[in-house]
Design a protein around this nucleic acid. Structure first.
Lengths: 335, 335
DNA sequence: CTGTTAGCGCATTCAT
DNA sequence: ATGAATGCGCTAACAG
């Protein structure tokens, strides 16, 4: 026997299924004695009530569920997405199921499951691509899919232009006079990072360098910087794929007693909370908007299955000039 | 008619229910013509398939769901909790449903719903109390509940000793010579903050002040500091209920050209990422451990319903000495 | 290609 | 206090 049902429990305890049901639901109209024996039977057999059956029989409302697949490798960005998403969905009586999927393989396993079990009515993909043919699978089942932070082919998405962002990274340094630039950027498998890298390479002066970090962490940024300081003499500007890395750069440069921005300029990406305080020049992306657009979009698709898909959106990027670059008149020179 | 079923659709489209089911599931064994008419009937009636019924009929695995109720007022702490929780649960084939509940009323609404709909097999409460009688309601339905970051009465929990933490806050300043201290702390309805405040008041020198901020944000900390600077002359130490506030303090003090730690010492709470870089002395709580303990605990309770509840845990607090207080020999004097 | 039928596992009358 | 019977909405054979 696979997973036991109340029939199995009832048989084992020598009672009717109604009694088992009563015990499960804590009815007080059961004698202490039979309750005990039913509970024993349940734990003997490792019984777990089937939630779908309970909800169906009880006539529970049919709450939609949205599954959000996200790679938790960066702090502030995904957190803000979660926050906005959960608010939007909660307001619509929709559950948000969070799935932490690192890498495409892991994401694919989850997507296969969602498809097989039809266990959600909407999918929000964060910073991920959809494998070949996946879109069609979801279409067949009428499960809407949207993408955040990635330009997935045929599905509605919200994103920024990361290639443009990469260009801005270099241009910001160039505007401040940098001639020999380096880009420190996160994991290769993150599409956003790859795009920023491509944009940077389009705009940077010849002879620039790119250093790739496994982790988007302060220490990675610091380590990469130390290495650059040794091997890339004359470097006068460092761009970072994310603010966290940039903080590491600041740290390493401080240790090396380099002057910022006079000696070396720095520019980050994201404008995470507190970068203001760090006085870091950075490229801001409106993180909160990703989540709220995503919430609205997936809800709309769930509600009007036949309707037109929401228009994809490219959110604006903005250079926030602060003290780590030279084009800003009021350079604070904190560092 | 309330919510339409496939019978309604079938009747309206003049077909059998199996055909409707085929259309829903994208079977290709349906003529284009009948498919259209069924789809029209579905959108006319606003049909949404009942997920519970689908899963039951299809024999889908009975995936447990854990609902995590969390107040999203602080970034790093809850983010780390989510991260660890989602990992643990995913590894066990359990869904994590995230619910953003600000305040007790909102939390109670959700709890009522969970109880009424029996829509989850476990609840993780973050930084929240359980109203009177709630524990019993969940007990009756055999839905386990655990608490994170709060000492809820009868339910297993993981927390730090925030009263002790509050004391440490003051003691750390005192150890560096502070005689006139202020505490800047977050919203009153957060239990953790209240406890830290109580602990601070136990340990602080007479005549100390407490300032309460509505939001746990950099700007709040800065505003509170400016106010203190005006109205609380002679202040030589500021403790903060969280690192975010402390960053605001640093900012305001920098603007006011106060020397840290010589003039005024500062201590924060949490040891969020990057506080290292900020050179902030702070009280570290092991944020990641909250989530992983929580994941293990709720899984254990779900798996062995009759078994003994996991032991509650009080995680250790640690003073991380850095440059904003005086007892540290290697004061960097960054500010 | 389409309709009929029989459960899925449980909550719930309605009896007893 | 307890058991038998009915149905929740849907999928999946099985017929046609």
């Amino acid at each position: 026997m696979s997973t036991p049902t109340i029939y199995d429990i009832a048989a084992r305890a020598g009672v009717g299924i109604a009694t088992v049901s009563r015990v499960i639901n804590g009815s007080r109209r059961v004698s202490e004695k039979t309750r005990k024996s039913v509970q024993k039977a349940m734990s003997d057999l490792g019984f777990r009530p089937n939630n779908a059956a309970r909800r169906l029989a009880a006539g529970a409302p049919n709450r939609p569920r949205v599954v959000a697949l996200m790679p938790f490798f960066t702090t502030a960005f995904y957190f803000n997405v979660c926050k906005a998403l959960s608010r939007k969905l909660a307001a619509a009586g929709t559950d948000l199921v969070l799935v932490d999927a690192r890498g495409q393989e892991e994401a694919d396993r989850h997507l296969d499951r969602l498809l097989a079990e039809r266990s959600c009515e909407g999918v929000v993909l964060c910073s991920m691509d959809l494998s070949e043919g996946r879109k069609e699978q979801f279409d067949i089942l009428h499960i809407p899919v949207i993408a955040l932070d990635f330009h997935a082919q045929a599905i509605p998405h919200v994103r920024v232009d990361n290639i443009e962002g990469g260009r801005l990274l270099s241009q910001t340094l160039t505007a401040g006079g940098s001639k020999k630039q380096a880009l420190i950027i996160g994991t290769r498998h993150a599409h956003a990072f790859r795009d920023r890298e491509a944009g940077f390479l389009q705009a940077c002066p010849p002879g620039s360098r790119v250093v790739e970090c496994e982790w988007d962490a302060v220490d990675s940024g610091a380590a990469a910087t130390r290495e650059l300081l040794e091997s890339f003499a004359g470097m006068d500007g460092i761009a970072c794929g994310g603010d966290t890395l940039a903080v590491g750069v600041l740290k390493a440069l401080r240790e090396a007693k380099r002057k910022i921005p006079d000696d070396i300029q720095i520019v980050g990406f994201d404008d995470m909370p507190m970068m203001d305080f760090m006085n870091l020049t950075t490229i801001r992306q409106p993180m909160e908007d990703f989540g709220s657009w995503g919430g609205d979009a997936i809800l709309k698709l769930i509600r009007t299955p036949g309707g037109p898909p929401p228009d994809s959106v490219v959110l604006p990027l903005e250079v926030v000039y602060r003290g780590t670059t030279r084009q800003n008149p009021e350079t604070a020179g904190l560092h």
